[in-house]
Design a protein around this nucleic acid. Structure first.
Length: 570
RNA sequence: GCGCCUAUAGCUCAACCGGAUAGAGCAACGGCCUUCUAAGCCGUAGGUUGCAGGUUCGAGUCCUGCUGGGCGCGCCA
């Protein structure tokens, strides 16, 4: 699938396509030759603005040397007067690249596009209004969100924003594992605290949760406080013997706390899906029955097994334990069947790589249901582990959670913007080192402020232009004034944006947006230092204010995709 | 032992379905504020892309085999 490209790329591709057809009719190229014509951004401005490797790809089939074929292609393009209005010069370079030098009018046309499309510049319709469900975070309601959940939240939310920007109809979903052994464990831990035990006591539950937050929950429960979670209100029963009441209260308390953390992080969900609802509605049992009826199960050692090996797993897995309970992936299968039945042909699960072994099991279960779910469904985006560093040393604990660093710690300490940026700026496949000192620093070390500062500077220029009565309108502005090296570099960066958004969405890689924004901000800062905007020469001034307005808009659009604010002053 | 991820400058990381001389930031060194925000800019230095083969006109990118690191391999989730 070809990504949405900037219009000059699309234009050159279509012209080259015509030229290829021409060469076919001349018999120079075989009829069956169907190149994927590729136009690249150049790394070196000596190579022009855009470049094509078509001659290199087609040389063999044409039976010509690449450079000779390139000559031929260039000659045909040069014959087209309309084409040569947009391309001021072509050069053949290296082994046979064709370098395109764009005319100023072609370069500056992006300004008109940006100012006309405003906040929609960069958007496309790749998704064609199709539904996509993105499940992310999905933390167990047994403790505060940790930094790994934070990475999931940042990456998942940016993915959603990218998909929305490219024409998908997105449902953000959070799956609560509110049934199962870990919840029982939570209830026992709170109960122990309610009875005044501490983790040091010999009678403290085995594998109990030891963090301070358990004490907070127990105290609130015993005080009869009322907790309001997203879908329920629970009053503490103040009875240390009522484990059921404790369980209910504890889950509500932790859900509420997670909700507050997510809100502070600027992440909203459309659906909170409860694992317990699958049991209540008999969906887990239905899925199990279907798997049994389809012959993918067997009993052994008092347990029920799923033949996951028939779907690529290295060993079969227990579905129903000897104690009668289901293993965790069984409700997961029921849940994903539910997603499918809700009509999501595309589903993306963003989760930590430490859970990657579930993928094979869930997909195997879905195949075993035999309801025509495609083999590779659903998609997964796995993020690797996060290490938090402070003063050159790894930070492993938080006061509240005990054994891990919480998302709340980071938001409180470095702020929402910087936390989101740092957690989304690296490829999900890479382990991430979160440097608190760097994220906190309000200096040029910090890419968040670097990008935001670029935006704030342009806002400031616009304010001052207004104060001085320097009005301008696009219709009467002569964009040919933008001749400096920095201006042309910036124009090329602006033109890249729709394509970057498109590729980032297609590859499910939000970090590409962060990377791009840094490049764009760098181009803007270089320009800012090289050129004065509020000059006497009205023609030049207006052109620069137009470019400044367009750049500000694209910075804003890009920051929005990351969920990072775009301040008007700093 | 098996599976997934990963290895790029001293450090943290990029590199657009294989493209030209592998790029940024930090750290180091040298410059730029009477002028729109110096949270900025310009320059210098820094590399056998873990190792060895292979495919290709062309490989950090694809294939094979090694080596190191992370995660997983439970009738936990």
């Amino acid at each position: 699938m070809q990504g949405q490209s900037n219009f000059m790329k699309a234009f050159i591709i279509s012209q080259l396509d015509q030229v290829v057809s021409q060469l076919k009719s001349e018999g120079l190229l075989p009829e069956e030759f169907q190149p994927r014509i590729q136009i690249d951004n150049t790394k070196d401005k000596a190579h022009g603005d855009l470049a094509s490797n078509l001659a290199l790809m087609a040389a063999k089939q044409a039976g010509m040397k690449p450079r000779d074929l390139a000559e031929k292609l260039v000659a045909l393009l040069q014959a087209d007067a309309a084409f040569m209005q947009k391309v001021s010069k072509m050069e053949i370079a290296g082994p046979g690249f064709i370098n395109f030098f764009l005319s100023t009018s072609a370069l500056t046309s992006v300004i008109k596009e940006v100012l006309a499309q405003e906040s929609t510049f960069g958007q496309s319709n790749q998704g064609q209004g199709e539904k996509v469900q993105v499940e992310f975070v999905s933390a167990n309601p047994t403790g505060p969100l940790h930094v790994g959940h934070g990475r999931g939240a940042a990456v998942g939310d940016c993915l959603c924003r990218l998909l929305e920007a490219t024409g998908w109809k997105v449902t953000r979903e959070f799956y609560y594992n509110d049934a199962g052994a870990q919840i029982n464990n939570l209830a026992l831990s709170v109960q122990a605290r309610a009875k005044g035990l501490t983790p040091e006591d010999p009678s403290w539950p085995e594998d109990g949760y030891r963090g301070d937050y358990i004490q907070d929950v127990a105290t609130a429960y015993m005080a009869g406080e009322t907790v309001t979670a997203d879908d329920r209100q629970v009053k503490g029963a103040a009875d240390a013997e009522d484990l059921e009441a404790i369980r209910y209260f504890a889950v509500a308390s932790l859900r509420r706390e997670q909700d507050l953390d997510l809100k502070a992080f600027g992440v909203d969900f459309d659906v909170f899906f409860l694992e317990s609802s699958l049991y209540q509605e008999g969906k887990v049992e239905e899925a199990v029955q279907a798997l049994i009826e389809n012959g993918f199960t067997y009993e052994e050692g008092g347990a029920l097994w799923l033949k996951t090996t028939e779907f690529g797993d290295d060993k079969d897995r227990v579905m129903r334990k000897t104690d009668g309970g289901y293993t965790y992936f069984v409700p997961d299968v029921a849940y994903h069947l539910n997603k499918w039945q809700r009509g999501f042909k595309k589903v993306i699960n963003e989760q930590g790589a430490d859970h990657h072994s579930t993928i094979t099991r869930v997909r195997a279960g879905l195949q075993g249901l035999k309801v025509d779910i495609p083999e590779g469904w659903p998609d997964y985006v796995l993020h690797q582990m996060v290490t938090v560093m402070r003063s050159g040393e790894e930070v492993k604990i938080s006061k509240r959670a005990g054994s891990y660093v919480t998302l709340r710690d980071l938001i409180d300490e470095v702020g929402c913007d910087a936390t989101r940026y740092f957690l989304a700026a690296r490829a999900a496949t890479s382990q991430l080192t979160f440097d608190i000192d760097l994220a906190r620093s309000q200096t040029n070390d910090n890419p968040v402020y670097y990008i935001q500062y670029a935006h704030a500077r342009l806002c400031s220029v616009a304010r001052q232009a207004e104060e001085k009565g320097y009005s301008w309108s696009l219709e009467t502005t002569d964009l040919e004034q933008l001749q400096s090296e920095q201006e042309q570099a910036l124009l090329n960066q602006l033109a890249r944006f729709p394509e970057v958004v498109s590729i980032a969405a297609r590859e499910l890689e939000p970090h590409q947006i962060a990377q791009y924004l840094r490049d764009l901000a760098a181009a803007m800062h270089s320009w800012y230092n090289a050129c004065q905007f509020l000059v006497e020469d009205e023609a030049l001034r207006s052109a620069r204010l137009a470019l400044a307005a367009a750049t500000r808009q694209v910075l804003n659009n890009g920051l929005h995709l990351l969920g990072v604010s775009a301040p008007e002053s700093m």
